[in-house]
C-alpha cells in the first residue's frame, strides 16, 4: 500500500515537472521556428517560481481566490486515474474513463467561477469562450472514446492499456496492437480534439491576448497566476498522457515520456503556423468534420468488432 502512497505523492510533482519541461522545450522550438533563439528550456520553472514569489496578492473576493484552487484540485484528482504508461494508476475501476472525462471539465469550471467574480469583461468573455470551446470539442472526443470503449469492452483506462500490452523491448517493435492501428479514425478525431483541449492555436481563443488580453487570467496575477501556470502544465500532462495511454498503448517509462512529448510537439507544429479561429468558427469546425469522422469511427468499430 505504501508504494501507492509514495506513487500518489510523486505523481503530481512528476506531472508538474514534466508539464513545465514540455512547455519550456515547446517555447524553444517555436522560437526556432520564428528564426530566433528563444529562452533556456528551464525558463518555465523560473517563471513559475517568480510568480509564486510575488509579494502582493490582490483578490476580488472569496470565490475569486477559490477559482484557481478548484482548478488545481480538479487536475490533481484526475492524476489519480491516469496510468503512468504501463504502471497501474492509484485508483482504477470500471467506468473511470468517464470519471476522467468529467474531472477534466472541473478545472475550467472552477476557474470560470473565480473569473466571474473578477467582474472584468475580458475575463467573462474569455470564460464564455472557454465553455463554448469545451462544448465544441467534448462531443467528438466523447464519441471517439466511446468507440474505444466499444472496441475494448472495458471502461477502465488501466484495462485499455492492458489490452494493448505485449512484452516490450527496445529491439522488437510491436505496436501493432495499438488502438491507433485498430481504430485510426477515432485516433485522428481524438488528436484534433486534443488540439482544442490543450488550447493550442487555432483554438486558443480562450487566452487570445490580442482580442481579450489573456482572457480568464486577466485579473489573476502573482501567486494565483503561478497556480494557473501549474494547472496548465498539469493539464498538458494529463491530456497527452490520456491520449498516449488510450491510443498508443502506454508502455514503459522510456517510451511513455517521449510519446507524450511527441504528441505535445505534434500539436505544437500546428500551433506554430496557424492563426486562430473565431469562437463561432471553432464551434462550426468541431461540429463539422471531426464529428462526422467520429460517427464514422463508431460505425467502423461496430463493423470490425470482434
Amino acid at each position: 500500500m505504501n508504494i501507492n502512497i509514495l506513487y500518489a505523492a510523486l505523481a503530481p510533482i512528476v506531472a508538474i515537472l514534466l508539464g513545465l519541461l514540455y512547455i519550456g522545450i515547446g517555447r524553444k522550438i517555436i522560437a526556432r521556428l520564428q528564426r530566433r533563439y528563444g529562452p533556456p528550456f528551464y525558463q518555465q520553472y523560473i517563471d513559475t517560481i517568480k510568480l509564486l514569489a510575488k509579494k502582493t496578492v490582490s483578490s476580488h473576493g472569496v470565490f475569486f481566490s477559490l477559482g484557481p484552487i478548484m482548478g488545481l484540485a480538479g487536475s490533481m484528482v484526475t492524476l489519480l486515474f491516469i496510468p503512468f504508461g504501463s504502471a497501474a494508476p492509484l485508483l482504477s475501476f470500471h467506468g473511470d474513463i468517464i470519471l476522467v472525462m468529467y474531472l477534466v471539465v472541473i478545472a475550467p469550471l472552477g476557474m470560470a467561477l473565480g473569473v466571474g467574480e473578477g467582474s472584468n469583461p475580458n475575463g467573462s468573455i474569455g470564460m464564455a469562450r472557454g465553455l463554448t470551446l469545451m462544448l465544441a470539442y467534448e462531443v467528438p472526443f466523447v464519441l471517439a472514446l466511446f468507440s474505444v470503449v466499444l472496441y475494448t469492452h472495458t471502461t477502465s483506462i488501466a484495462q485499455i492499456v492492458q489490452s494493448q500490452a505485449g512484452e516490450w523491448s527496445l529491439l522488437k517493435f510491436h505496436g501493432f496492437n495499438w488502438l491507433t492501428f485498430a481504430l485510426p479514425i477515432s485516433a485522428i478525431v481524438a488528436d484534433i480534439c486534443l488540439q482544442g483541449m490543450l488550447g493550442e492555436k487555432p483554438f486558443d481563443q480562450v487566452i487570445a491576448p490580442h482580442e481579450i488580453a489573456s482572457g480568464p487570467m486577466v485579473e489573476y496575477g502573482g501567486k494565483y497566476l503561478g497556480m494557473m501556470v501549474i494547472n496548465h502544465a498539469l493539464h498538458i500532462y494529463i491530456e497527452t498522457a490520456l491520449f498516449v495511454d488510450i491510443f498508443l498503448g502506454g508502455g514503459p517509462v522510456w517510451f511513455f515520456i517521449p510519446a507524450t512529448f511527441s504528441v505535445f510537439i505534434l500539436s505544437l507544429i500546428i500551433n506554430g503556423v496557424l492563426p486562430r479561429f473565431r469562437i463561432g468558427q471553432a464551434l462550426k469546425f468541431y461540429w463539422g468534420v471531426p464529428l462526422i469522422l467520429a460517427v464514422i469511427g463508431i460505425i467502423y468499430t461496430m463493423v470490425v468488432i470482434k
Binding site: 521556428l33 530566433r36 507544429i269 503556423v273
Partner: peptide, 17 residues
C-alpha cells in the same frame, strides 16, 4: 502550405545575441 514555415527549424536564427 503553412507547414512550409517549419523549414526554419533547422536554419541558423538571424538573432544578434
Amino acid at each position: 502550405k503553412p507547414l512550409s514555415g517549419w523549414k526554419f527549424l533547422f536554419k541558423k536564427p538571424h538573432t544578434i545575441r
